[in-house]
């Protein structure tokens, strides 16, 4: 049977297809192509050469930045997941729907302000003469070095992703059938076991997607490692900036970008496969 072109359905589907083609697939193809260009006299020459790839993959510092970025983004995703969970659980199961809506609104409000501004505000809090060290000083502690460290970078990452992870986890848990939890408790499950055997499996998709978002946003973030981590050591996004500054090597920066995109494709694909995998029935 020949399927007919459904113009009505196409009217609604076409814009997103065109949008993705123009603003995602197009630039993606261009970045991949650019990684094979060369730079001569500070001007890009369109050609097909492996020079930039050979240069970048043979440099230890590229792999060092790659490992560090993976570690930091993974840590941010794990920390955000763990820190958000108790709050999300409270909002989902212990609060009224009205309170939950209000809190979610408050969680969205930070996004009204520029992320860069929020990051800079950490300067006054984390600096050695800052608010936190001032408070520690009252108890005879510190000062502790928090800016220009991995801690600073993680703080920046969490500023970016924690509200988002909390919202996603709250929505996920609020949609779990309450009767399942009651049944578990009636059958004698402890709260910890209820979380492990009912809430986590039932909300697996939401939890994984939330963690994935945290990872993706942290992995590509330039602001936190640059301004709060002091570029010491640099992450992959900083390496992109460094590479473009150094002789306008956009093709080499494109190599780094492609490496990052491939990594994110693999991780996102694996996470989504895991999130939607059905449990094998016994």
């Amino acid at each position: 049977m020949r399927s007919r072109l459904n113009l009505y359905a196409l009217t609604f589907r076409l814009p997103i297809i065109v949008w993705q083609a123009l603003f995602f697939i197009g630039p993606l193809i261009f970045v991949v192509a650019m990684s094979f260009f060369v730079v001569k006299n500070y001007r890009m020459v369109e050609t097909f050469e492996l020079e930039s790839w050979a240069k970048m993959v043979s440099r230890d510092y590229v792999w060092s930045a790659y490992r560090y970025t993976l570690l930091m983004a993974g840590s941010a995703a794990a920390l955000a997941t763990l820190l958000a969970f108790p709050a999300a659980w409270f909002l989902a199961f212990r609060c009224s729907a009205r309170t939950r809506q209000l809190v979610i609104l408050f969680l969205i409000i930070p996004f009204f302000t520029s992320y860069l501004v929020r990051t800079f505000s950490w300067y006054t809090i984390l600096a050695e003469a800052g608010v936190l060290n001032g408070a520690f000083g009252l108890f005879g502690l510190g000062p502790y070095k928090m800016l220009n460290t991995a801690f600073g970078t993680l703080t920046g990452y969490l500023t970016l992703v924690l509200p988002l992870v909390l919202i996603l986890q709250t929505v996920t848990m609020a949609n779990i059938d309450d009767r399942l939890i009651q049944a578990a408790r009636n059958l004698g499950c402890s709260p910890a076991r209820t979380i492990r055997t009912v809430i986590l499996p039932a909300g697996k998709t939401g939890f994984v997607i939330a963690a994935l978002f945290a990872f993706i946003l942290s992995f590509g973030d330039f602001v936190a490692p640059f301004y709060l981590g002091g570029s010491n050591p640099p992450t992959m996004p900083i390496l992109i900036i460094d590479t473009t500054k150094a002789g306008q090597q956009w093709p080499r920066a494109a190599v780094v970008a492609v490496m990052m995109m491939l990594t994110l494709f693999v991780i996102a694909f694996s996470a989504i496969m895991y999130a939607y995998r059905k449990r094998a029935s016994r």
């Binding site: 440099r59 230890d60 510092y61 060092s64 930045a65 570029s231 010491n232 050591p233 640099p234 390496l239 460094d242 590479t243 150094a246 002789g247």
Partner: peptide, 10 residues
């Protein structure tokens, strides 16, 4: 430039 990148990542 190359050395500078290496140094930052050392």
């Amino acid at each position: 430039n190359d050395f500078w990148s290496e140094y930052k990542n050392a």
